[in-house]
Design a protein around this nucleic acid. Sequence first.
RNA 1: GCGGCUGUAGCUCAGUGGUAGAGCACUACCUUGCCAAGGUAGCUGUCGUCGGUUCAAAUCCGAUCAGCCGCUCCA
Length: 488
Amino acid sequence: MAKPAPSVMDKIVSLCKRRGFVFPASEIYGGQGSTYDWGPLGVELKKRVKDAWWESMVYARQDVVGLDSAIIQSPDVWRASGHVGGFSDPLIDNKTSKQRYRADHLIENKIEKYRKRKKQDKADALQERLNAVISDNAGLKQLILDEKIKDPVSGTDDWTDVRQFNLMFETNVGAVQDSASVAYLRPETAQGIFINFNNVVTATRKKLPFGIAQIGKSFRNEITPGNFVFRTREFEQMEMEFFCRPEEAPQWYEYWQNERYQWYLDLGVTPEKLRMRQHAQDELAHYASGCGDVEYLFPFGWSELEGVANRTDYDLKKHSEASGTPLTWFDQQNNEHVAPFVIEPAAGCDRTAMTFLVDAYDEEGEGKDQRVVLRFHPKIAPITVAVFPLVKKEGMPEKAAEIEKLLRPHFRTAMEENQSIGRRYRRQDEIGTPFCLTIDGDTIEDGTVTLRERDSMTQTRVAIDDLIGVIRESMNSWSRPEPVGASE
RNA sequence: GCGGCUGUAGCUCAGUGGUAGAGCACUACCUUGCCAAGGUAGCUGUCGUCGGUUCAAAUCCGAUCAGCCGCUCCA
């Protein structure tokens, strides 16, 4: 059997390691499953993603402020939010078909069948029994056996025991590891925002509607991580909780979906590979009344980059009840306390960076003439300008160093003087550097350099004095080139 | 966790019991005057790990670790 050609994902993973975007974590010890370290170029890419998000969500607006809350909060936070009880899944395997299911979903399907056959009383009875055993593994299994639920694939009832997969990482706070010291690593940054609602309102005197934005690491003990950095157990989130009056929630829900969808387009993501998908009622998280996902068409299929959810007043209400501290906003004009609704755009930072990598990846030509190029938007490219002396003589390296130093305060720069000029261009193409400058003999004579553009490979002669302005202008006017390469 | 596939140089991979290899990449020097040029020299490996069989193991056997795909979940 012929070996399959390396897929686009394989090539990107390989490029990421070779050029320093993403390394497998703990590699010298044999690796740590589904964990990755971001290398020198990757950390720049991720930083650009976060900067672009913060710029658009905080700096470009008057109604959103930032926050950086702790990863380890009181365990009470996660009890109140429902994560301790609800953020785990009862899973069961069928030994014959090797398929895995959520035990409660199997039973819910059975209830649905009863409903369809108009056996309402049976459905209700089963629902009641399900509610009674929802957090009891043995009870769930017994219920599945009692109801003679068969695996739709194998048709057998050869089930394993039900096991709980809690998605939160536990840790211990303090020197003595006993049950009183158990704490959790946050599974989302959002709760840190909710519990600081009063603090932020008091400190900033913000009025509804307003938002609180936060970027930071979250941790979920995923049963099945995978697809490179797409789903990892440690990941970085970019979340914003937008608080508004309950009656305005639907319009803000729509507003933020549009806003967030547009953000990806503005950073150059291929429109045909981006879509909004509305969640069906039964796939909503326990806190949401509605959710729309921004999805990208990866080589492995459409996958979620960001969820824009209507979290209603669920979280503030839960924390108010559990803590005894009312998390409401006082409307002085109408002399009333408002329990705000929350619209939450929650994006995955690593996923977004990976989207830009995948979407930017392009190959042109074949064999010796092949060019691999990352067509990043100039605003997210790890390096903006690379400076080359055409040859290593006649004062060119010194002149190049001088120009690189001139540009350094304005752009992310790099300098390379080894190997042929063509090879240096290609090396920069491969890491998505949008501009290359070449210093030649004329530079020393008349103070001009060759500015070479990544996507079109066109060269223009630019005076050193005009460089900063010309590069700025090119960055701002950049638009995604029509696809010409065979990137599939 | 279960099943299938996989693990040899930085990357892609060849190597079915007898001295660890290729291409690309990388480093130095020479050459080089605008798109992966050429020459010379050089570096790179506990063959994932541990154990077993054997005179001899990258190769056969066992275990283990890690990766990929699928099942469930989500940013």
